Amino acid sequence: LEELEQFARTFKQRRIKLGFTQGDVGLAMGKLYGNDFSQTTISRFEALNLSFKNMCKLKPLLEKWLNDAE
């Protein structure tokens, strides 16, 4: 759980530094990986307001997006 919290904080910082909005991330993930995510989902991930199971599902996709975006 602590690792997920740390990743969520780091993800938000890096996303902002790269100049992407939460909506940009959701749209890009849909185009790149075929998984559409709303701005609300990205927001809830960053705020740790998703279930642990959903956080675990999203983490690898967000890590991949972040690596591809950098």
Rank of each mutant, 00 (worst) to 15 (best):
L1D: 03
L1M: 08
L1C: 02
L1G: 14
L1K: 06
E2T: 03
E3L: 06
E3D: 07
L4Y: 02
L4K: 01
L4P: 02
L4G: 01
F7K: 01
F7N: 02
F7C: 06
F7T: 03
A8F: 01
R9D: 08
R9T: 11
R9Y: 07
R9F: 08
T10D: 14
T10K: 12
T10A: 11
T10N: 14
F11E: 00
F11R: 00
F11S: 03
K12R: 05
K12G: 02
Q13A: 12
Q13M: 12
Q13F: 11
Q13N: 08
R14Y: 05
R14H: 06
R15K: 00
I16Y: 04
K17N: 14
K17V: 09
K17R: 13
L18V: 03
L18I: 07
L18C: 04
G19Y: 00
F20G: 01
T21S: 10
T21H: 03
T21Y: 01
Q22E: 12
Q22W: 13
G23V: 11
D24M: 06
D24L: 04
V25H: 00
V25K: 01
V25F: 02
V25D: 01
L27S: 08
A28L: 08
M29E: 00
M29Y: 01
M29Q: 02
G30P: 04
K31A: 12
K31I: 06
K31G: 10
L32W: 04
L32H: 06
L32I: 10
Y33H: 13
G34P: 08
G34E: 15
G34Y: 09
N35T: 04
N35Y: 13
F37T: 05
F37W: 13
S38K: 09
S38V: 08
S38Q: 10
Q39L: 10
Q39F: 12
T40N: 06
T41R: 04
I42A: 01
I42Q: 02
I42V: 11
I42R: 00
S43C: 05
S43Y: 09
R44N: 02
F45H: 00
E46N: 00
E46D: 00
A47C: 13
A47F: 05
A47I: 11
A47D: 15
L48H: 14
L48T: 06
N49E: 15
N49G: 13
L50Q: 06
S51D: 15
S51F: 01
S51T: 13
F52V: 11
F52Y: 07
F52T: 15
F52K: 11
F52E: 10
K53F: 10
N54I: 03
N54F: 14
M55I: 05
M55K: 01
M55A: 12
C56Y: 04
K57D: 02
L58G: 01
L58E: 02
L58H: 04
L58S: 04
L58Y: 05
K59H: 07
P60C: 04
P60D: 08
L61Q: 14
L61D: 13
K64T: 13
W65V: 04
L66W: 04
L66T: 02
L66V: 13
D68H: 04
D68W: 05
A69P: 05
E70N: 09
E70W: 08
E70D: 15
